[in-house]
Nucleic acid binder design. Structure first.
Lengths: 343, 343
DNA sequence: TCAAGATGATAATACGAATTATCATCTTGA
DNA sequence: TCAAGATGATAATTCGTATTATCATCTTGA
């Protein structure tokens, strides 16, 4: 028990070496700028005192003098509790952490923002979003009002995931869903599929709309007939197959178990009778034992680059503040030539 | 382009509502102490201005003035890059987040601490650990010097994982490894095993020592002969089996693939010829297709309770600041009656 | 009518470091 | 011998918040 012994400050060093606090600071920062000079012997005396006492500058005080605090807020729309989608976001966080480690800044997880109706509120009463120098946004769907307010108040921020304009272009690092989806559609066309369907909402979050856009464009270009199934439910799926669809493109890969169960119940072989393509990674934890064709979202890299964009923003550096990263395509066992064609 | 945005300060609020900075501070901290009074209408005017601007106290300045932030630092010894063990720590973080969400505080991931020799340094030059009200420690092995310094400087902290004393008892929330390990040893004894072995270091991190301690105590109590295998390598494993060992207790479940590969190469059936028990969860990402007997570390709950202990500490509440949580036992397919006994 | 007490707000200062402007003192050159 | 320049150090101020001491102004009671 030494008791709460007081920290050694520059004042202490100053007293010990018979100089002023200002001199101590100057010695410490070793300023060689114009107009700042310290006699070698004075410098030595100060350095000795520092060595003896083991003085270390208080980083808190140091930060107060600066403009920013090198703290980046991380705002996640999905609540932690109950977990659910949290696993999906973990790789993004890893990328953010990794880059924060490299850039020497800290990440502030804004867990204090209240959760209402299953979503976190950004600007609720007592919002602490301004604790940090700015923030990174995570979430499938981002509130437009929040974006506008962030822009309006000039709070530096970057969205992980592409965002439509909100009173101006939104800085973001997204996945190139249109390109990845289009590539898979083209692949299906090559394999002989003539009627394909997009399973999902195709609207709401930008990531959904982007997938559907890529899907449509590529199908049209390949001369393939295409339709939509609005949900991964038995009835609409039955209708699609009855209409001659031979390949399903799933907006939400977490729906795969539901779709394979349905296919098994109908006696449809995958990919013999029906091909399946997963447009991304599942946002809910599900266990999938199939080797599904599709693509992977470069989540970790997105997290990394989000911080790069953030720093470019606050430092006024020149970069593209809207980036789309390529997804990694994956040939799985569920996309094959259509059995109907072969027969 | 809005230019470098200036932070909203109490001075701004003061100007907006026509009062002094001191008044703003008093309103914010809602001091009802003797001698401090604010007229309701003044208070309202100030609160309005705060609402309009979304003002939040600068955490740095607040710390300098020696007050609380409701920011809890999270210090992780394992670096993020390259990832590796990071997945193991994710559930702890989830528990921390969940409880932070409940308690209305934010988590500061101390990613700015430099990494040296594969470990993060806590008190390196310019350590920002004091930006937070205190911190939670994550890591298999915690530096003793760091613990002593935390205690010495009076920084409130809690370790996730039990820690030996460091100039006094260390506040912590750990897993009850001895009890869980002992239960599995007892189970093996019931199943007829007469010679068993502990595979691993059994020292270094407290969690290793705790497992070995539980193992020895339970084996002795059950009257079972026990030995040790210092690493999951072919040679020492061969020796153990040659010596009549019929069950292996793995300190590090990430070693399971290595051990099953070795067993397969030797033509040993699991559990017919040899039983396997995993003492916890793998700390490195490995794919295990077996249903291994063992126990699970209550990682999420440990994270949750760590924050509880933390707040109890800084609020001076009465609680046990050293907790051991029970692990969940899991009967798997790898622990069975010994074939040698049956023959 | 005046002193004592209650009320509400503010000025001043601390926290620890960084920085700028300023001030002595000493050299040097003519 | 005196002005100009070089040298070395310091006083004062800044950053944003918290707190204490102080100061007006208004009530109240006798």
């Amino acid at each position: 028990m030494t008791g709460p012994r007081r920290r050694v400050t520059q004042r202490d060093i100053a007293r010990l070496s018979g100089v002023s606090q200002a001199t101590v600071s100057l010695v410490l920062n070793n300023r060689l700028d114009a107009g700042v000079r310290i006699a070698p012997e004075t410098r030595d005396r100060v350095l000795d005192a520092i060595r003896e006492t083991g003085y270390v500058a208080d980083p808190v005080a140091r930060r107060l003098a600066d403009r920013n605090n090198r703290i980046i807020g991380v705002f996640t729309y999905e609540p932690v509790f109950p977990s659910g989608a949290r696993d999906f976001f973990h790789p993004f966080l890893l990328g953010l952490e990794e880059q924060a480690e490299r850039l020497g800044c800290d990440l502030l997880l804004l867990t204090s923002a209240p959760v209402e109706g299953g979503r976190r509120r950004m600007f609720a009463e007592g919002s602490r979003i301004r604790l940090a120098d700015g923030c990174v946004l995570l979430g499938q769907e981002v509130d437009r009002g929040d974006l506008e307010r962030l822009v309006g108040e000039g709070i530096p921020f970057v969205s992980v995931g592409r965002r439509d304009d909100a009173g101006g272009p939104v800085p973001c690092v997204g996945a190139d869903y249109p390109a990845a989806t289009a590539a898979l559609v083209a692949r299906a066309a090559e394999l002989g599929h003539r009627r394909i369907a997009y399973v999902g909402r195709g609207e709401g979050p930008e990531s959904y709309a982007d997938r559907l856009r890529g899907f449509r464009a590529a199908a049209a270009k390949a001369g393939v007939e295409y339709g939509r199934v609005h949900a991964a439910a038995a009835e609409p799926l039955d209708a699609a197959v009855a209409g001659g669809v031979t390949a399903l493109f799933l907006e939400e890969p977490a729906d795969i178990p539901a779709v394979t169960d349905w296919a098994a119940a109908r006696g449809l072989g995958v990919p013999a009778d029906l091909s399946l393509v997963a447009l991304g990674d599942p946002t809910r934890p599900v266990s999938i034992d199939l080797d599904v064709a599709g693509f992977t979202i470069p989540r970790r890299e997105m997290g990394r680059q989000a911080l790069d964009v953030f720093f470019a923003l606050i430092e006024g550096a020149e970069t593209d503040v809207q980036r789309l990263l390529p997804c990694e395509l994956h040939d799985g066992a569920t996309l094959g030539p259509t059995g109907r064609n072969r027969s």
